[in-house]
């Protein structure tokens, strides 16, 4: 089945001084897919992420987020020529032109971080509420209605609270809703960060190594959570992952990077047998990683 791409990365290049971290990279994230971005350490995965989410401004290339049903190439070109950053009515966003907060707010791209970035001194519930900040802020009349306690805002807040409750249940943290996020165990912090990003109801969710540091049971739970997000919420996912079992089990599409360039792009079973991918991974010096890859490949084949 062919689906139109949600995110199109065209000729993305990112240079830091003399170092080219990402070189002429093109790939697509299709709507409703879980797309994995993999590659050895230092391949430039996080740099791609930071470009997509606006934390870095790419040196060259075009990043199109098309949230409408169909990808309209003519409209994209028109928008590119117009010099505007995005067109809300066409659902088209040129991410390379937009700053990070605008990408999150307008293009509805949410992300998590490799080193978890929770609001540690705020409660689990507060973290989730901040995730829904923008609609709440509008409902509070930019604080004016809220200041006088008007019912309009109170209703909207109750609604947000319900939304938070469903996520609390989904990530099994209802009992700890009023505990500070910094006091949660590591795995729960990872889940909370994903739920916080989901509170903003994104069209694209970017996850930077969501399974890092999780034990096998937590990792399995994460897989289930991500599948739910894809299937029930209809949110497309772009993720960076080192854990090959996660990648092979849940992703619909895999893009492999090495030294800032794309070396393979396809379904997990295609990637598994790709000679260049195996070479790239076996070429690394890290013995542990090689074993991990081989084991994962074997596990994949056995199923």
């Amino acid at each position: 089945m062919h689906r139109d791409p949600l995110l199109t990365v065209e000729h993305l290049t990112m240079r830091f001084g003399g170092l080219t971290a990402v070189d002429d990279l093109s790939f697509e994230v299709r709507r409703g897919d879980i797309t994995a971005l993999i590659g050895p350490n230092g391949a430039g995965k996080t740099t791609v992420f930071n470009c997509v989410t606006g934390f870095y401004r790419p040196s060259a290339g075009r990043l199109v987020l098309s949230s409408g049903e169909r990808f309209d190439a003519a409209a994209v070109d028109a928008l590119t020529k117009s010099g505007r950053r995005y067109s809300r009515q066409d659902g088209l966003f040129l991410l390379e032109r937009m700053p990070d907060q605008e990408i999150a707010r307008e293009a509805r791209v949410a992300r998590t971080f490799q080193n978890i970035r929770l609001f540690t001194g705020m409660t689990v519930l507060e973290n989730l509420m901040v995730g829904e900040h923008n609609p709440l802020m509008r409902a509070s009349g930019y604080s004016l209605f809220g200041l006088f306690g008007l019912p309009q805002y109170r209703k909207r807040e109750a609604q947000a609270l319900d939304h938070a409750r469903t996520w609390l249940e989904r990530i099994e943290l209802t009992a700890r809703a009023d505990d500070p996020a910094g006091a949660l165990p590591y795995g729960a912090q990872r889940r909370l960060e994903i739920a916080r990003a989901m509170m903003s109801e994104p069209t694209l969710l970017c996850l930077d190594e969501p399974a890092a540091g999780l034990n096998p049971r937590e990792s399995a739970e994460l897989n289930e959570l991500l599948r739910d997000i894809r299937d029930e919420r209809g949110t497309s996912i772009l993720l960076i992952e080192h854990d090959m079992s996660v990648v092979m089990q849940i992703s619909d599409h895999v893009v492999v990077l090495d030294y800032g360039e794309k070396i393979a792009d396809g379904r997990p079973d295609e990637i598994r047998n790709d000679a260049r991918v195996i070479a790239a991974y076996l070429g690394v010096e890290d013995e542990g990683e090689v074993e991990e890859v081989e084991a994962a490949l074997a596990a994949g084949q056995a199923r």
Partner: peptide
Amino acid sequence: LPIGRAWEALREDEIACRSLGLD
């Protein structure tokens, strides 16, 4: 209110705030 929580979130982690679309 949302603004107060956003201020405190800003104090906690500005980068995370930006990733959530806070202005």
